[in-house]
């Protein structure tokens, strides 16, 4: 039974969607804010359900993604951070634990830097946001579907035909899916194009929350060298390298992923 419910919120006149599991009776664990990656919101995936057993999980869909409005107001990273600050404030859920995946990691780090009172602990999963000249991040926008699959999955052959994602009403044919995908990725270019680096490294010294860096050992989108780079750049960071996983450890190794995150948060 799914505890995650799709809710629609209104923020500054724009309707946005989120999955929200609601509070867990008897639990005093901090609520968890899940920030999705550049392609799409994962929907009520098993790893989110598992995390929601012990705490309230809130997983917003970014403005301009899927069926969430307000993308035109988000021009750059700081706009998205401010949006999340307002969202968290409206949910009366602070302080939060934040789990950010890919683009969501970059956003989560900025959120923790700018709103330290809001973020208790931070988990970065295959996070974009740093740049190493010696290990350039591959261009995610030029990959064929097959290349992307191999970059994201340790065992691409066992990957599901379609990645789990938050369904969008009315998107039920190939053309509509292509338009939706382009719309989502177009939003992501505001933060990741041409290189996924927006000066975050200059600000990381001010990231006060403890950071767990979870990284698939075979991540083909954000090379594993970035895991060490993140951990070295923040005041309190450590790395958990996940075997048998690439860019989607939460989908490919959900049990291990949840265990690692639970250990860090408790």
């Amino acid at each position: 039974m799914s505890t995650l419910e799709l809710v629609e919120l209104e923020l500054d006149g724009a309707r946005v969607r989120a999955l929200d599991s609601g509070g867990v009776p008897g639990s005093d664990a901090a609520p968890l804010l899940y920030l999705h990656d550049a392609e799409h919101h994962p929907g009520p995936a098993p790893f989110l359900e598992a995390l929601a057993e012990r705490r309230r999980v809130i997983a917003p869909e970014y403005p301009g993604y899927g069926a969430s409005e307000g993308g035109e107001r988000i021009a750059e990273l700081s706009d998205l951070v401010l949006y999340l600050r307002r969202l968290a404030g409206g949910l009366d859920a602070a302080p939060l634990d934040v789990v950010g995946h890919g683009l969501g990691g970059m956003v989560g780090a900025e959120l923790a830097i700018w709103c330290p009172q809001l973020v208790r602990r931070l988990v970065l999963v295959g996070a974009y946001g740093l740049w190493l000249d010696d290990v350039p991040v591959p261009d995610p926008y030029t990959m064929s579907p097959d290349e992307r699959r191999r970059a994201q999955w340790h065992d691409a052959g066992a990957a599901p035909e379609q990645e789990p994602m938050l369904a969008v009403p009315g998107v039920d044919d190939e053309h509509a899916r292509a338009v939706l995908r382009a719309q989502n990725l177009a939003m992501s270019t505001k933060f990741l194009w041409p290189l996924p680096e927006r000066g975050t490294v200059r600000r990381l010294h001010a990231l006060e929350a403890p950071v767990l860096v979870v990284h698939g050992e075979a991540d083909g989108l954000v090379p594993p060298a970035y895991a060490e780079a993140w951990a070295a750049a923040v005041p309190q960071g450590r790395v958990e390298l996940m075997v048998g996983a690439a860019h989607l450890p939460m989908l490919e190794r959900p049990t291990d992923f949840v265990a690692v995150v639970e250990r860090f948060l408790s």
């Binding site: 926008y141 064929s144 382009a182 719309q183």
Partner: peptide, 14 residues
């Protein structure tokens, strides 16, 4: 890989 970066064409044009 270089012909249709996301956002180059608007949804209306697509």
């Amino acid at each position: 890989r270089f012909l249709a970066p996301p956002g180059y064409h608007t949804p209306a044009t697509m």
